[in-house]
Design a protein around this nucleic acid. Structure first.
Lengths: 222, 222
DNA sequence: AATTGTATTTTTGTATACAAACTGATACTA
DNA sequence: TAGTATCAGTTTGTATACAAAAATACAATT
């Protein structure tokens, strides 16, 4: 695995938690390679906002509640727009892809709560897959790269672990509403539905952030 | 000057024009440094979308007319939102900064057309300064980094060189309208005014892109 | 003339070495 | 006691070397 992907995964999987300090040498040892390729990966991660440069080394980014709110505001705006544009430009293939993504999403949720044999990460991935289809259907290549950079940031907190069955099934239902609006080319309805969907996701994440902030304050300062 | 800034400037100043191929060694020689720091700068520029990786080396990004339209759509969305949020959150200091930026902008335009002793880059910079004030007043730190990455992309074409006096003075007038809306905390009016302002800018840039595309087609293919 | 093979050149990917910058602890001074 | 000077230990910044990959040129073959 290349260093960029390795470090990003490690952050998103909680192996390198927020505020953890990382040095080039440490990472080089972990990956059994020299510092040169590590530095390039770090430059990229820095420009994506996942790590913050220190005088010596870097640290995994930590977001305040306010940060998370603002990031979700941004995502709401961008994905709402993408949904509206998708209504305008969607091809039959796009609708098919969205239906398929939702179908897989439903099956994964069923399996998770019936047999427990699905990893929660897989469910998250299938959720994202639907969103990806919508963004791609918007036919604006540039919006895609911006949204994907916004979307990963809150994942640092791994709050999706706290979602329950109702929340997941509800999210699937809303996907269907969004899909219907896009299919019927109702731009405004698609935009609003996506907007609400993401804000709803935000409200599920924020309490988790709250408890993390309290934890930090209770423990060592800063 | 650090390699990142140097290369970025060279691209934005037209020294390294769109589609130009750059190798690490060439850049290292230009800057009289080794390849190591060059590589880091290139990784960063790549993640910002200013260059595209090739099998060997990179090339300065070239945008089609469609790209530019989509980039402006994005910028319109983001800055429109920023203007609305600025109306909500603006402090007195923000209003002051905007007024100051516009004042300087006006003076620079006057000087440019009366004495010709101002560089067009300086005018562009003062125009951006007003926009910066608006975005900062929106109090959303995350939107700032996204907008600034979107804004630079069309500058690759240096089409602002083609602006005439009417266009510049008109742009100043619109700034005043936006400022008034933000001052009076009229979110929707601020959003729409900013929206129109940027779309207007797009319409001034697109004909220039058109002529460049024809040039490319007439000359060598691809 | 088109195609394949091979040698040569160009260019990147990575490791390593060493100097420079920064940190933290300890001892020294007012 | 507070401040600061200094020294050792980390860690980064940069240059350099060499192997690996890709492009190019050119000859040989069909």
């Amino acid at each position: 695995m290349n260093p960029y992907t390795y470090i990003k995964q490690a952050i998103l999987h909680g192996e390198f938690p927020p505020k953890m300090r990382l040095t080039e040498e440490f990472l080089a040892n972990q990956l059994h390679i020299s510092r040169t390729p590590i530095r390039e990966a770090l430059k990229q991660l820095e420009s994506e906002g996942l790590i913050v440069p220190l005088k010596r080394g870097v640290r995994v980014r930590h977001f305040t509640k306010k940060d998370i709110q603002q990031i979700y505001d941004l995502r709401t705006l961008l994905e709402g727009y993408a949904a509206a544009q998708a209504s305008l430009h969607r091809k039959n293939k796009d609708i098919q892809d969205m239906e398929e993504a939702n179908e897989k999403y439903k099956k994964a949720i069923d399996r998770y709560f019936q047999t427990g044999k699905t990893r929660i990460e897989d469910i998250l991935h299938l959720n994202h897959q639907f969103h990806d289809c919508v963004i791609k259907a918007s036919q604006n290549q540039h919006i895609y790269s911006h949204i994907s950079k916004v979307v990963v940031l809150p994942l640092i907190f791994r709050s999706f672990y706290w979602f329950n069955e109702d929340q997941m099934r509800n999210s699937l239902d809303v996907h269907k509403i969004i899909l219907k609006a896009i299919k019927e080319q109702d731009m405004e309805r698609a935009r609003v539905a996506m907007h609400e969907h993401i804000y709803h996701g935000r409200d599920q994440v924020l309490p988790h952030i709250d408890s993390i902030e309290k934890e930090y304050k209770a423990g060592k300062k800063n």
